[in-house]
Design a protein around this nucleic acid. Sequence first.
DNA 1: TGAATAGATGACAAACCGATCATATGGTAG
DNA 2: CTACCATATGATCGGTTTGTCATCTATTCA
Lengths: 172, 172
Amino acid sequence: MPNKRPYIHVSGSQGSRFMLSQGVGYAAIALGHIAAAGGKPVLVKEIAEAASIPAPYLAKIVHMLAKRGLLATQRGVGGGVTLAKPATEISLYDLCEALDDVVVQPRCMLGTAECSDARACPAHKFWTAHRNKTLDFLRSTYVADIAAFEARRRWSKPADGPGATSLNILPS
Amino acid sequence: MPNKRPYIHVSGSQGSRFMLSQGVGYAAIALGHIAAAGGKPVLVKEIAEAASIPAPYLAKIVHMLAKRGLLATQRGVGGGVTLAKPATEISLYDLCEALDDVVVQPRCMLGTAECSDARACPAHKFWTAHRNKTLDFLRSTYVADIAAFEARRRWSKPADGPGATSLNILPS
DNA sequence: TGAATAGATGACAAACCGATCATATGGTAG
DNA sequence: CTACCATATGATCGGTTTGTCATCTATTCA
């Protein structure tokens, strides 16, 4: 339905620091779709069309997630993609790990190589605490939450106020 | 002196989401050095050697910051780089803006194009609050703070505990 | 004027991410 | 066995950031 692309399509790496990689974003939405299907295999093509994600690229992400044990794929007629474990047991953090997002690697905010509690950069104290909050969110947000959020939004009025934005997905 | 490089040198964009760009990190440390010189012009080469930053790359960053009005450069004998305004008036946020770091651009955590209060992605509420804290830190941390932090660390024992890590640079 | 100094500038390479295309491979159904 | 379907896989491309190199230009000083 939406011919306006719901993703920021950027050729090249283009940066985008301070957000998850595009791949993890795609994965999060895709797994939400798969979870919503309730165990029935879903085609990569279907997901790609529904979420306006480039299909060949999504196929590679799906393949990687299958290799890492988060998805199960089945070729041939009647095949498709299913979750390899319950939607309540796959967190955003798991997706970041599986897709090697840099957010899971401890990095200095300023890029210094030797940055630790013992030898801190000027931003170290802030960044350590801030990063922990990021990881807490990723570890406590599950594919099930994403599916529930998307399902709820589908019943709310689009572009609605509080109904569309108050969700249990939000810690603190 | 340090032949171990204090920066993570990565050829290529390599990602590094969830930190500032390498350029902003270099700029922050470089301006700390310049501020510490107390108004005397500092050579790009000196800064580069002291901080183990690639000199030609630093030269470009310095040039950009000069174009944006944060630094003043002077060629010829006795020349070098000085701050164009007081160290207490140049924030990390200013550096990010001048160097077009993506942190200053509002972006959805999951990369969706249409993400707003009205049409939120599952991470929107968390991310909005989290991002505001990031910006608060950047806006309230100044080149003067960096210079002071580096100066203090120089007097502390290297790799020391609380003395080296407790600093006024940390909000909350 | 000429030499030395120091930043300015442009060309270019490497690495990575996002994306696309074509083709191979593994399954199911008849 | 054959046709068809759906994922698997590899080649390739464009764009961005980071980094290197060579050269130009501006300034100072003798």
